[in-house]
């Protein structure tokens, strides 16, 4: 799941080395926190969050092995 987020984001940003994805497991969900280089913020959020929404749609579709909900936090 982490690898999926990283591959998608890598293809969108100018500074792929600055991508950080952290995973936090909570009671009912797994939270993935994504940070990118400040210059690339717009490239992962997009106008009206359109890109962020597309990333979430793809990530949520890729149901992980567990039954827990997945939540993607950007920045």
């Amino acid at each position: 799941m982490k690898a999926l987020i990283e591959s998608i984001v890598t293809s969108l940003v100018d500074h792929p080395d600055d991508i950080v994805v952290t995973e936090t497991e909570e009671e009912a969900k797994i939270v993935y926190h994504l940070t990118v280089n400040p210059e690339d913020v717009g490239k992962v959020i997009g106008k009206n969050g359109r890109i962020a929404k597309a990333i979430r749609t793809v990530v949520y579709a890729a149901k992980a092995d567990g039954n827990k909900r997945i939540y993607l936090d950007i920045m």
Partner: peptide, 14 residues
Amino acid sequence: GQTLNALQYIVHLA
């Protein structure tokens, strides 16, 4: 088709 459309948008950007 929402996942397919999201993929399409990301691929388009990439």
